[in-house]
Design a protein around this nucleic acid. Structure first.
Length: 551
RNA sequence: UGCCUGAUAGUAUAAUGGUAGUACGACUGUUUUUGGUGCAGUUUGUCUUGGUUCGAAUCCAGGUCGGGCAACCA
């Protein structure tokens, strides 16, 4: 337990509960509905729940909140488990609300027997109408006065499948005038003759969230049930159910959900992006899903670090996307293998280089003294970036231009002697002379240059495809922007580039993390093959020169 | 017009009646064979009006602004 960091309000509550002896150890839970893929907002909840039990001692259950058979699928269950494991968390028990269907049914019967629940034959519209409005009390109906015996029989018949979907519901009998709309006789069971991904066709009635969640927490002896702010009004119902049933008193606590600039964190909207082909899939590297971020090259460490930094509180927030970028850069800088890739090539010819070719060594990672070196072939003709040559260099331009000198990374210092344009006036070739005694690591030339360029030997170059990603949306606050969120989609969020790479990439493992020097961090895409290498740009490098140019 | 919540630099998050701090961002400088990294520094803040107090971001009262609540979703 590290004491130097101050506690957030939930950690505060837990340390008090532990100190007072209320609990000997804590048990939290992560309760996704298996109706979509996990995203970075879930990661915040995951890191919180698992982090809490790791920090204070105890455990965390993984519980699938699968009470709505029409939206849930096993595919989602599997992806959620895979994402959780990848993030590095282990749950104590794998639970399903559907495992409690029998118990939950019994709870409902208990409520009926206490005169606290009744079967209502009204239509959804009628029920909504009878609920009143936030400022006007609701009105009852004749079904509210049904006898216990009648309710018992009707509810049993509901279970037996004697009624059609939507014709009857079971409601808790609480208070139709309560200022909290959720307490105005909430529906706790509805008829759905649908196939459930786990219970199959065994059930045709399913409990609502409010009659399943708190009870599931209680059944598992969850001590601290942590959810997001929009569930605050549900807490009264949560407690009411537990009180009336007299079961283990789990307690609900709420924190604010995560928002990030230039993206959306809503399963419903993310599903829409997939279904309407604005992105390729749930794991499209542009998606803020865990699987998308994994494919893009984010590391579990960087996501956990991000969740650590954003903090836990109760106020609405929107985190800068740049914080996420900072976190992944910081981690990748330490572990990524440096490689050289040229994306928009022009030819560089070294006129006085007569050796044919030679093999140079270049460090894999300057941050890691044990990282070793790799062999990089060097020759008379190289590819360099078009952006690294300027016909008429501006002041503060440290790259190549007529008469200017630069170092070629891990190789020699060269001086630009001349250049050649094609018919259209576009520069195609730059002619330089090199300084033989300036060889990297054995430089006796005494020459000091300000710029260092990456390069690839033309005859050894390997073709690769780079997926360069930009933000998915054009506005900062997508959820808060007026109108349809899809109007703000950035159509240029993906740029595919053909590039030349150094041959070392051919021998690198599939899951290696790379920094393409001066370009950014890259990770091999799932579609990449030895014959056609494809890399996703996880994030660019910070670019002080781009900033300087804007001035 | 009801109920529930919340409000500290650009963005987050601490300070639990006693020096408003930290991170990211931005800006300087410095180091550097990545205009990367590292290092040093600068910048900007307690929603408002009263009250209690020796002392208020913190407690009290009123106001303002934000978010949520009327799914057989979770």
């Amino acid at each position: 337990m590290s004491e130097e960091k101050s506690l957030n309000f939930i950690e505060e509550i837990i340390s008090q509960d532990l100190a007072s002896g209320k609990y000997a150890q804590i048990l939290t839970r992560f309760p996704p509905e298996p109706n979509g893929y996990l995203h970075i907002g879930h990661a915040k909840s995951i890191c919180l729940n698992f982090g809490l039990s790791l920090h204070f001692g105890g455990g965390t259950n993984l519980r699938f909140d699968d009470t709505n058979p029409t939206t849930e699928e096993t595919e989602y269950v599997e992806s959620i488990k895979a994402d959780l494991k990848w993030l590095g968390f282990n749950w104590v028990k794998e639970c399903y609300a559907s495992d409690y269907f029998d118990t939950l049914y019994g709870f409902a019967v208990q409520l009926i027997e206490k005169g606290l629940a009744y079967v209502d034959d009204s239509s959804p519209e009628e029920i909504a109408l009878q609920k009143g409005t936030p400022t006007a009390a609701g009105t009852g109906n004749e079904y509210r006065n049904r006898s216990i015996a009648e309710n018992l029989e009707l509810f049993s018949n509901m279970k037996l499948g004697k009624y059609e979907d939507g014709t009857k519901v079971l409601r808790a009998k609480i208070d139709l005038a309560n200022p909290n709309m959720l307490l105005r006789d909430p529906i706790i069971y509805r008829i759905k003759k649908a196939h459930h991904h786990r219970t199959g066709d065994k059930w045709c009635i399913y409990p609502m969230y409010d009659f399943a969640h708190g009870q599931s927490d209680s059944i598992e002896n969850i001590t601290h049930s942590i959810c997001t702010l929009e569930f605050i009004p549900h807490r009264a119902l949560y407690d009411w159910c537990i009180d009336q049933l007299g079961i283990f008193p789990s307690k609900q606590y709420e924190f604010s959900r995560l928002n990030i600039t230039y993206t959306i964190l809503s399963k419903r909207k993310l599903l829409q992006l997939v279904q309407e082909h604005h992105v390729d899939s749930w794991d499209d590297p542009r998606m803020p899903t865990i699987s998308g971020m994994r494919r893009r090259g984010y590391t579990p460490e960087s996501i956990r670090d991000f969740c650590d930094r954003i903090g836990i509180a109760k106020r609405e927030n929107i985190i800068d996307f740049s914080l996420l970028e900072f976190c992944v850069r910081e981690h990748l800088n330490k572990i990524a293998q440096r490689r050289m890739v040229v994306t928009d090539p022009i030819k560089l010819v070294i006129t006085n280089y007569e050796k044919g070719e030679e093999i140079l060594n270049s460090e894999n990672n300057p941050e890691d003294a044990q990282g070793g070196v790799r062999a990089v072939p060097f020759s008379k003709e190289l590819w360099i970036e078009r952006g690294d040559f300027m016909e008429e260099p501006t002041k503060k331009y440290f790259r190549l231009g007529p008469g200017l000198m630069v170092r070629l990374k891990s190789a020699y210092i060269v001086k630009c002697e001349s250049f050649e344009k094609d018919a259209a006036g576009v520069v195609q070739t730059v002619y330089v002379t090199y300084v033989p005694e300036s060889k990297s690591g054995a430089d006796t030339s005494g020459i000091h240059v300000k710029g260092t360029l990456h390069w690839v030997s033309a005859q050894h170059a390997v073709p690769v495809v780079l997926n360069e990603y930009d933000r998915l949306f054009k506005v900062e606050d997508v959820a808060g922007a007026e109108g349809d969120f899809k109007d703000y989609i950035n159509e240029q969020s993906l740029t595919k580039t053909h590039a030349w790479a150094e041959p070392a990439l051919l021998a690198d493992p599939l899951d290696a993390r790379f920094q393409f020097i001066r370009k950014g961090y890259f990770y091999q895409d799932t579609t990449s093959t030895q014959e056609a290498l494809v890399f996703n740009r996880t994030v660019t490098l910070k670019d002080a020169w781009a900033k300087e140019q804007k001035k």
